[in-house]
């Protein structure tokens, strides 16, 4: 055996989402983190469920899906290593609006949303730091959704 087992704080701080996080914040955030892994086909969460966590993917692939009558599950986004799964933990009523399914074996850091929300509420500097990291993701996904809605590759495009 070679290489020491990394503690959760190291793993959290090494994830690009939390890159450059100040040490005190790193400790606070890591207190809400645990390791998670998912087999291919396993669901991280389902539409309508309580959005009490979000996931930082370490490796693997997760498909975000919506089930449509007569069409089955439609994948509208895949997320891979270094990306974040789940934004609904940030916004009341904290419910998932889609399913998330592991396409391949996926290792992730599971973050307890209620725990992190509580710490952000108690320490607004941490809250601002977390929001600064989530906002570009939110805006990027909004822009991507806009492009998908425009259906630019359609026959009339």
């Amino acid at each position: 055996m070679s290489g020491a087992v990394k503690d959760i704080e190291t793993i959290v701080r090494e994830h690009p989402f939390f890159e450059g996080l100040l040490e005190p914040f790193g400790k606070l955030v890591s207190g809400c983190a645990r390791n998670a892994h998912f087999q291919p086909g396993e669901y991280l969460f389902h539409e309508g469920g309580a959005a009490d966590q979000f996931y930082l993917i370490r490796d693997g692939c997760v498909a975000l899906e919506i089930k449509a009558p007569g069409r089955g599950a439609i994948t509208f986004q895949t997320l891979r290593a270094d990306e974040v799964v789940g934004l609904s933990w940030l916004i009341p009523p904290y419910r998932w609006t889609y399913d998330a399914r592991a396409v391949e074996f996926t290792r992730a850091i599971a973050m307890d949303g209620a725990c992190l929300r509580g710490k952000c509420e108690a320490d607004h500097d941490l809250g601002y730091e977390v929001m600064k990291r989530f906002m570009p993701i939110l805006v990027g996904r909004l822009q991507a959704t806009r492009m998908q809605l425009l259906d630019v590759y359609g026959d009339d495009a």
Partner: peptide, 20 residues
């Protein structure tokens, strides 16, 4: 832009591929 659950490749806009 969208796919069924049998698709194992990327789903999302082409611009997302540029960053990585």
């Amino acid at each position: 832009d969208h796919a069924g659950s049998d698709w194992r490749g990327h789903v999302g806009v082409a611009t997302a591929l540029i960053g990585r």
